[in-house]
């Protein structure tokens, strides 16, 4: 499994031409208790850097940006119904969206796990 990370604490896991996107454990720990998640519609075309989702904790709202270009093919309604899942299992069951990649080479710009860990340690 090829997992990449952004400086903004999203993870992207690629399987064939479909990528699953979520937020990292560091991101959920910084957010605190998540109380609201808004996801895009299936079929929405995202360009790298577009707002892909909104996640709100008790105190603040944050945006989740698309780390790559792609079309939304599936969203995780379970985290809309139960936002607290994002705190419990951010890198597993609480994924946000799946997108069909339109430019897989963009993945090369993202960090691998070692680089991401160093990024977080430096914060």
């Amino acid at each position: 499994m090829n997992i990449r990370y952004t400086e903004d604490h999203e993870w992207i896991s690629v399987d064939g031409d479909v990528a699953t996107i979520g937020i990292t454990d560091y991101a959920q720990s910084q957010l605190g208790d998540v109380v609201f998640v808004e996801l895009p519609d299936v079929g929405k075309k995202l360009a790298k850097g577009d707002e892909a989702a909104v996640v709100e904790s008790v105190k603040a709202a944050s945006e989740v940006y698309a780390p790559v270009d792609g079309e939304v093919v599936e969203v995780n309604g379970a985290i809309v119904d139960e936002p607290a899942k994002v705190n419990e299992d951010p890198t597993g069951a609480a994924w946000f969206v799946k997108v069909k990649l339109s430019n897989a080479s963009q993945l090369d710009d993202l960090m691998d796990e070692t680089a991401y860990k160093a990024h977080v340690d430096a914060l």
Partner: peptide
């Protein structure tokens, strides 16, 4: 997380 709140996403308190 990205945008204005970036890493210390604690809204009013952080900003």
């Amino acid at each position: 997380m990205p945008g204005p709140c970036h890493v210390s996403c604690l809204g009013a308190f952080a900003m």
